[in-house]
Write a protein that binds this DNA or RNA. Structure first.
Lengths: 359, 359
DNA sequence: TTGTAGGCGTTATCAA
DNA sequence: TTGATAACGCCTACAA
């Protein structure tokens, strides 16, 4: 069943059927009705390839997971972000294909991917998940004027992106710790080459400076955004001969979860001996009622918004880069030192909930 | 740059260029060389849409995440499985598009998806992640003879799938617990409508029966495969007036992790008071050296194998359903009661590692 | 508002 | 081994 046959059955031309299918308004009511009846009767659906070929748009968006990010693909951030992206695509009748630079040989596979997918016009545009600073693909796409949107800003290129203001958010979070009165504030950071890490660290430094302090080198531990990495990083801090910090700002909830575990294993009370602040707002997916104070970011919305921005770009290819910052929100629960009373209340009311709270 | 232009520049016909591009051997060495030189010089890549239209194959595979599974998309099983699928696709020069039945209105969105993607011939075949028993899509695809492969078997339909033998694996795991001498063995199961849950439960029951016992109703808790669900389920078991079970078989590592947390929060010693056995082999992604005894399944390989099976199906559409079981392996670490000595050793050697071991 | 007709860039079938 | 040529199914001026 194709346009031609529908046209014949409805007693109109292919063009008219095409117009009906594409919602063109220049069709008489009667013609439209006849066509639609046939379409439904025969359950006609236009052929995607033919459409792509004729319109030179595939209605497919590629979501690229750079190799550097591959390893932390298990981080709940990605599934949630992808979910948002898929849904936004679906809403616009687009499809999303997953492109991952495989570990085997990043250089070769990514080039092969690039050629096949970009040059073959397989996708109309690209969304790049959490790029790393030195990733060459950004410059390449830009110079070829291929439409793309980063999830996470890029420091060196004027490109479209969707991000949260990591720096401000981190600054706010650390300032909150300062306001609690903590003086020695450590940070467990993400990888040095990821832009989100850099920005969150910058916010940490800014907040300290505004409080009239300087960051101490041994109070910053670089880790990898994983729970396991957070566990290790916190143990490093615990082993610091300079003594315990009063608070720790951790650049992801997964790491914060590991850090809390390390503290518990060492018998260090939170927040009494060490306060903890996370970043992500995803920990609630792991425990039902987290006690972790954290920076909430709209993860799924970041994926969805990236898609919307890309669609806009596809509509007007000559437009200037579109850059959007989505809002974050400080979620003050218990590990930062807030809500101590509430803790008691809940413990008294229901031991189970109290237990769950404890990460 | 297209076939035509390449042909002109190489002084051959379009057909010859097409043959070169597609690796057809019926081309003279000289012609091939000339064509390849031009292709490389001009960086020509065939247009995907035109290819699809002419060959009526899109070289795209759809990966469907059913709505029921959506909620547990955060489970590390899915990212890892998907990663395997994407890589296998990439190896075969296929692309993978992600199809998710969105929460909004599962019935409507999934139908819309179905029409657009299946009828529009957008994808050549489908991989369905962890189907639920009552999912109608299986019957539908089958009756329309659309190629698809399930990740996880289906009890009521003769269809192609890739799975592990959940029942045997669970039986083996529980038998191991029996062999340790534990008598009251509980189970924390997944959702009742997921086939993997059902099979793992069946294996549990079989193992008990073989040990001359019957499962007790209050010793089976149905949960949802999440860490949080496992936490709650374990607390239910702890509240059981019949007293603590001696061992618990947990149907996923995520739930097992939550269960261990619950035990720790209640001050119950593992494995001395309660032994624990998990299922997945993914917990190692969350902690560096898990102490969790578990059933390891080749998660990434399940995704990859599903793709390979699907490609085979595409090659010979009339072939009978292909059903593959991938091997599992019992990983005996500490929570089942094995390796008590090793525990001591590691503790003595390195407190950090010992700490990490503790979930 | 409708229809005609050319073209999108391949693959595939023949005949040479 | 090569080359014409006809699909593939749709979109899109352009003309009516």
């Amino acid at each position: 069943m194709n346009l031609e046959e529908v046209a014949k059955l409805a007693g109109v031309s292919r063009s008219t059927v095409s117009r009906v299918v594409n919602g063109d308004h220049r069709v008489s009511t009667t013609a439209r009705a006849r066509v639609q009846a046939i379409i439904e009767q025969y359950n006609y659906h236009p052929n995607a390839a033919a459409r792509s070929l004729a319109s030179s748009r595939s209605r497919i968006i590629g979501l690229l997971i750079p190799h550097a990010v591959n390893q932390i693909f298990r981080d709940p951030f990605f599934p949630v972000m992808i979910q948002g992206a898929v849904e936004a695509c679906s809403d616009a009748d687009y499809n999303l294909t997953l492109l991952m630079e495989t570990a085997a040989d990043a250089r070769i596979t990514s080039d092969r991917l690039y050629q096949r997918v970009i040059r073959g016009r397989h996708v109309d545009g690209l969304i790049i998940a959490s790029s790393v600073v030195e990733d060459p693909i950004v410059a390449r796409l830009q110079s070829e004027k291929f439409p793309f949107v980063l999830v996470g800003r890029h420091p060196r290129h004027e490109v479209s992106f969707v991000d949260v203001d990591n720096r401000s958010a981190a600054r706010e979070a650390v300032t909150h710790l300062v306001d609690h009165g903590y003086r020695r504030i450590a940070m467990i950071s993400g990888p040095r080459n990821m832009i989100a890490s850099i920005d969150r660290y910058a916010g940490y430094v800014t907040a300290l400076q505004e409080a009239g302090r300087l960051p101490e080198a041994e109070l910053t531990i670089y880790s990898d955004f994983t729970r396991r990495g957070g566990y290790r990083a916190m143990n490093e801090l615990l082993a610091n001969p300079g003594g315990l910090p009063e608070a720790v700002f951790v650049a992801s909830d997964a790491m914060a979860s590991g850090a809390l575990q390390a503290l518990r294993d060492s018998g260090v009370r939170v927040p009494d001996e060490v306060a903890v602040m996370g970043f992500d707002g995803l920990e609630e997916t792991l425990v039902s009622r987290s006690i972790l104070s954290t920076v909430m970011q709209p993860t799924s919305e970041e994926g969805a918004e990236a898609v919307r921005v890309l669609l806009q770009l596809l509509d007007s290819p000559e437009s200037a880069p579109i850059q959007r910052f989505l809002p974050t929100r400080l979620s003050l629960r218990r590990t930062c030192g807030c809500n101590r009373d509430e803790e008691f209340e809940m413990t008294a009311v229901n031991a189970t909930i109290e237990g769950e709270l404890d990460v």
